[in-house]
């Protein structure tokens, strides 16, 4: 395999690393959850996840992450660039989309409507509602539980 193959080997190695890393991290979380849920069934005070156990999963993924980093640095140094996902040559050929008629009028109407809605929202307490939600963490929403 000669040096010109670097453009093929490194991307494949990086792809394998990415997939493997994602699988390890996902599988680690699932294993921790199954294990923790079983422990919680016996003792309701047990935590399903702990920082230590999460750390163990990260440690397991660390060697692969280092391999990934090395491959990434080498590919940067060798100038291996990602091939972009352009469409094939038989892509569409068509006339540009025309701007809608009265575009300025539509725009102005929408801007005025938006400003009226914002003012109405401030008056009916909508802005305060946004503030209340934004300064409190909804644990369920961010995925904490």
């Amino acid at each position: 395999m000669n040096l010109t193959d670097k453009g093929k080997i490194l991307p494949i190695l990086l792809a394998v690393c990415c997939i493997a890393l994602a699988v390890i991290l996902a599988a680690g979380a699932i294993v921790l959850y199954v294990d923790g849920a079983a422990r919680r069934a016996e003792n309701p005070l047990e935590s399903i996840y702990t920082a230590e156990k999460a750390g163990q999963v990260m440690k397991a993924a660390l060697p692969l992450f280092l391999v990934f980093l090395c491959a990434l640095v080498i590919s940067i140094a060798l100038g291996v660039k990602p091939k972009t996902g352009k469409a094939s040559k038989n892509a569409v050929r068509m006339k540009p989309q025309a701007e809608p008629k009265h575009v300025n009028t539509i725009r102005t109407v929408v801007i005025i409507a938006a400003v009226i809605l914002i003012i109405a929202g401030i008056l009916n307490g909508g802005a305060l509602d946004v503030l209340v939600k934004a300064i409190n963490i909804c644990t369920e929403c961010v995925g904490l539980g």
Binding site: A26, A29, I30, Y49, T139, E140, V142, G143, L144
Partner: peptide, 28 residues
Amino acid sequence: EGAGGHLVNPANASMYEMLGLIFTRKWV
């Protein structure tokens, strides 16, 4: 940003207690 941003900070170690199915699902 929300869950990860908090969990990586040692000051929020107690947040690990609330992690469960929702976190596992969203993490995956």
